[in-house]
Design a protein around this nucleic acid. Structure first.
Lengths: 241, 241
DNA sequence: CGCTGCATTGACAGGGATCAAGATAAGTGG
DNA sequence: CCACTTATCTTGATCCCTGTCAATGCAGCG
């Protein structure tokens, strides 16, 4: 059975069959959540951890003036807030952007997991470090690239991340994101996101229709924004000592 | 003897005297590093962890076109890259912005530390979660605030963080940052950083001279940018179960 | 005392934001 | 299955925040 979590962690650590079985068991009790539902809200006392098995979710912070910034996209296989039990208050919210399959783990089961399964723990740490790296790259994206590069960069990143969990076919992947959500990801206005999207389309760099994104010429799109995937740390799991 | 690391971690965890002694011993072999020295460079294989005891450092990513974005400021007491040994390649660099006192720990000593001292480990996790929260807030800052609010927000954040380690006197703290570095922090140009700085000065919101920043009316500056410190998680270490 | 790196200014261009109105697409209920 | 409602997407006109380019001032320093 397909499980993006296992697939992902297998890249980051070196799991054995027992580990895979453990992870598989973890994911047994998933639930379907419709789009636009908050999984956690800023200010909440965090009680549980979420794994996203299918769909799409986002971390965001809303500002008093109504603006908001999405600080992370959570794709299948992403394990959110592994360690959040340490802090007593959520400083951001998580929302589903599409109908999603979610696993919720209690704090206790996470503790149990990390105590009993060192390789899984290692892989989870790896994964949270990668998330941090993505966060930094997004900051560079917003701070130092113009709208066109920013958007192209995002599409390249998602291509790689989704490829990593087997959700890309023929350089095409699901992208069920509203233009105004896209704007909140990139630090733009929805109007400008729309125009940027059209510019990319006009250049034949992307095709986006029916919530699916197709990249006709991946190297060209990567070149367009100077995309360098090394921050995703997905390279051969070589030299882990 | 004053030790910002101990002071900081004491907020995040609950240390006992033995823990404090351990941390104190850790910091015995510090070295003085002059300004503008890279402690780590993107692409390096990370071998050690840094603690900054005095001075100021920054995490940054440099782009091929010469632009760069600073993604974090490291102030005294900050423990950088606790877990970095898990990844095999640094995806960013760290540079001193001022002459600084730095402790370098080998990977082995970090492992030993985390294995032997659960409360310290807990505090270090807490600290790295706070760092992540700061990262997210910076993203909001760059993505959704204009230059003036951005800069004001940064100054408010530093006030709180430095207060936390006892480095603020009379609402004044050391700010040995070049305007072009400031620009790299905020995602602006140095020219515009200069102008923004002057706007803030003209409104009497800040006074910056001789590398020291004074905030005449803290509540007013906070109000100016809607500063809410809760993302720094410095509140009473209450309900940690 | 003349460097040399920073800070400061001015003029100007431009990327993105705003505001507001239509055009499409996607659901919904009958 | 169609009429209707509502969310999204598009587009145009206009403004302004921020970037660019380039020159000048200033201050620490060898």
């Amino acid at each position: 059975m397909f499980n993006p979590l296992i697939r992902k962690l297998d890249v980051g650590g070196e799991l054995n069959d027992a580990d895979r079985a453990t992870l598989h068991a973890l994911c047994e009790h998933s639930r379907l959540v419709e789009a636009d539902q908050d999984l956690t809200r800023e200010g909440d006392r965090p009680e549980s951890v979420h794994i996203i098995l299918d769909g799409l979710a986002a971390r965001y912070k809303a500002m008093p003036n109504g603006k908001r910034q999405i600080t992370a996209l959570l794709v299948p296989g992403d394990f959110c807030d592994l360690h959040v039990a340490i802090l007593s208050r959520m400083d951001h919210s998580i929302v589903t952007l599409a109908p999603s399959t979610i696993v919720r783990l209690s704090r206790a089961s996470v503790l149990e997991l990390t105590h009993r399964h060192p390789r899984i723990t290692h892989a989870l740490w790896w994964s949270s470090l990668v998330d941090e790296g993505i966060l930094r790259e997004w900051m560079v994206n917003i701070g130092r690239r113009d709208a066109e590069e920013r958007m192209a960069h995002l599409f390249c990143e998602l291509l790689v991340r989704l490829q990593n969990v087997g959700l890309v076919e023929n350089d095409t992947y699901a992208f069920p994101v509203t233009q105004s959500e896209l704007a909140d990801i990139l630090g733009l206005t929805s109007v400008h996101a729309n125009r940027t999207l059209q510019t990319l389309r006009a250049q034949g760099l992307i095709e986006l229709a029916k919530r699916r994104l197709h990249i006709p010429d991946v190297p060209r799109l990567k070149a367009h924004c100077n995309f360098d995937a090394s921050y995703l740390h997905l390279v051969p799991r070589d030299s882990q000592p």
